[in-house]
Design a protein around this nucleic acid. Structure first.
Length: 564
RNA sequence: CGGGGUGUAGCUCAGUUUGGCCAGAGCACUCGCUUUGGGAGCGAGGGGCCGCAGGUUCGAAUCCUGUCACCCCGACCA
């Protein structure tokens, strides 16, 4: 490609971009914003996307996954059938056609694929079957940000597998896991896989592929001694050996006046104890039912764990009005004693050893001291309910947990029969009996991967593409196009490279050398050939964008040097 | 969803408090001359319904009302 006519609108400065990848992609002329969270991929970005897609296709095909393409526009009925039309939330883009028929723009395609397969595949003989597509997805994010890292429209690879039995699912899941490792490795990313929550898609057994980066919005808990890593939503807490003996006699429960004490910190100061000696009481609405959750004062409740313990599909904190209705008090004065309504009371396992609890009295400005579980109130269930913290023990090896930020670029799930149940996806087994498909689904954010690569591969001057996904293999720069010798040599090299099948971007613009070099640094093509004043001696420069090292070589050698 | 901020040339922004020769600068773009290995110099040009819609006024980028868009921060731990 000749840069003279290429659409590569580089910029000197960019406001309104926080993330490095966002900034560089804008400045280097890869993307342009069209609306909040919506971007045009300019020619350079499109080339990178194609490279990433090619890698993805190769690895998918290698494990026997077949590519297809489903519509972005989907009838609401399918989503009503699975129930997600109502439960997916406001991120689902809904629209209507001229006849008032309702549609959604797909944020993911379990419904569409299940509908396809239930109609087109009805015998075990075709199983297992894995299908994938690379396509634009839509999610109406409440707050799009970070450029391509969190857009409202983005490119995703999504694969779905259908199985007659669990073992088959486990096998494909393993294949996918390996394929994902291959894909992200080939893209030049430093990444890890972590245990994760399945979110609204449902199902058990899932891994997220996280690219380590400060730009990430996800927190990962990592063990400093072993290779354990998990999304902090999922990371299990190991039970510390129960601390205190329970046979000590505890004073009778006592109500004390605690005016204007609303937080654990205030109560800790008031009582002259540490927050870890107190019990925090929160009210959640889990599948429409109020559930009281108790954790140690210095711990944080993990909503995902609460949801999972209750085997529920939704879980969020109750609003103040609901709290008042259920407990009779406002936030800051809640406790498990004398709850107005009879509700489920969950307690974190760390509280099991508490001989006496200091808790809210369900009456504004009052707390109870010396409450005893079993005497003054009942806990429905003890469980692991808190969020892991830095410094906690690793659930595998007992080492120390640290947090790291990451960008989720891939996610694989074992879905089970969630969708085949909801949508009656069945096939006939060897005995002629109807069976539900067991399903898996596997996603990769293609456009997000592009952005994640930039997060990991750049310097002050711009992007540094890994060779495997660079928009071009070689950047050929003619320092001075007005110099006939330089121009002729550069033109000859350009033709030779093209002829040899090398992807080359040729900077033939009538710009000054400085401009060309700055742009080349920004764009980040790994190999650079500079044709300059030594052209008279048939000498050119071969430079590495990453290391900055350059060597002077005879122009006749260039093809062999480039191709090795 | 809550809070804050910004909309003036392709880009970055000044001008708005105090209404009137305030339609401006730098960069980018076009032409000419010079320059030619790290974002050149001089000269001459082109380009903006001042986000949009109402209103006040003799007169509005500037004041008032409404509206839209975009950016940032936060989102409940009792």
């Amino acid at each position: 490609m000749r840069q003279k006519t290429a659409l590569i609108p580089t910029l000197r400065s960019v406001a309104e971009a926080e993330m490095i990848s966002h900034q560089l992609l804008l400045r280097a002329g890869f993307i342009r914003q069209v609306a909040a969270g919506v971007y045009t991929y300019l020619p350079l970005a499109q080339r990178v996307l194609n490279k990433i897609s090619t890698i993805v296709r190769e690895e998918m095909d290698r494990i026997g996954s077949q590519e297809l393409l489903m519509p972005a526009l989907n009838p609401a009925e399918l989503w009503q059938e699975s129930g997600r039309y109502d439960t997916y939330g406001p991120e689902l883009v809904k629209l209507q056609d001229r006849h008032d028929r309702r549609f959604i723009l797909g944020p993911t395609h379990e419904e569409t694929i299940t509908d396809l397969v239930r109609n087109a595949v009805n015998t075990y003989k075709k199983l297992p079957m894995t299908l994938y597509q690379i396509q634009t997805k839509f999610r109406d994010e409440k707050r799009p940000r970070s450029g391509l890292l969190r857009g409202r429209e983005f490119i995703m690879k999504d694969a779905y597998s259908f199985h007659a039995d669990r073992e088959s699912l486990d096998e494909i899941y393993q294949d996918m896991y390996q394929a994902y490792v291959n894909i992200f490795t080939r893209c030049g990313l430093e990444f890890g896989s972590v245990e994760a929550d399945s979110g609204s898609i449902g199902g058990k057994g899932t891994h997220e592929f996280m690219v380590f980066s400060e730009a990430g919005e996800d927190k990962i808990a990592i063990c400093t001694s072993c290779d354990y890593s998990a999304n902090i939503e999922m990371a299990e807490i190991v039970i510390d050996e129960t601390s205190s003996a329970n046979d000590e006699t505890v004073a009778p429960i006592e109500k004390i006046h605690t005016p204007n004490i609303k937080t654990i910190d205030q109560l800790a100061t008031f009582l002259q104890v540490g927050p870890n000696a107190l019990v925090k009481t929160l009210l959640f609405i889990v599948d429409e039912q109020p559930v009281m959750v108790l954790v140690r004062g210095d711990h944080e409740v993990n909503e995902v764990k609460v949801k999972n313990i209750m085997e529920a599909s939704t879980c969020f904190m109750a609003d103040e009005q609901t709290i008042r209705n259920v407990t009779g008090a406002s936030p800051g004065s809640l406790g498990p004693v004398n709850v107005k309504e009879k509700i489920t009371i969950l307690a974190d396992q760390a509280l099991r050893g508490f001989a006496q609890w200091h808790i809210g009295a369900n009456q504004d400005d009052y707390h109870f001291l010396h409450a005893v579980e079993g005497r003054d109130f009942e806990v429905s269930k003890y469980a692991d309910l808190r969020t892991i913290e830095e410094g906690d023990k690793c659930p595998r090896c007992g080492g120390i947990i640290r947090f790291q930020k990451g960008v989720e670029v891939g996610h694989i799930f074992k879905l089970g029969t969630k969708y085949s149940d909801a949508m009656k996806g069945t096939f006939l087994d060897a005995n002629g009996r109807e069976q539900m498909y067991i399903m898996g689904c596997y996603g990769i954010g293609i456009s997000r991967t592009l952005s994640a690569v930039v997060e990991q591969h750049h310097d002050e001057g711009g992007i540094i593409w890994p060779e495997a996904i660079s928009p071009y293999a070689v950047h050929l720069i003619a320092v001075n196009m007005k110099d006939e010798t330089q121009r002729n040599l550069a033109e000859k090299l350009y033709k030779d490279l093209l002829h040899a099948g090398v992807e080359v971007l040729f900077d033939d613009r009538p710009e000054r050398a400085g401009v060309k070099f700055k742009d080349a640094d920004l764009i980040g093509i790994p190999k650079r050939i500079v044709v300059g004043s030594k052209a008279t001696e048939n000498l050119i420069e071969l430079k590495s964008r990453r290391s900055g090292e350059s060597q002077e070589v005879n122009a006749d050698q260039i093809l062999t040097l480039i191709q090795k």
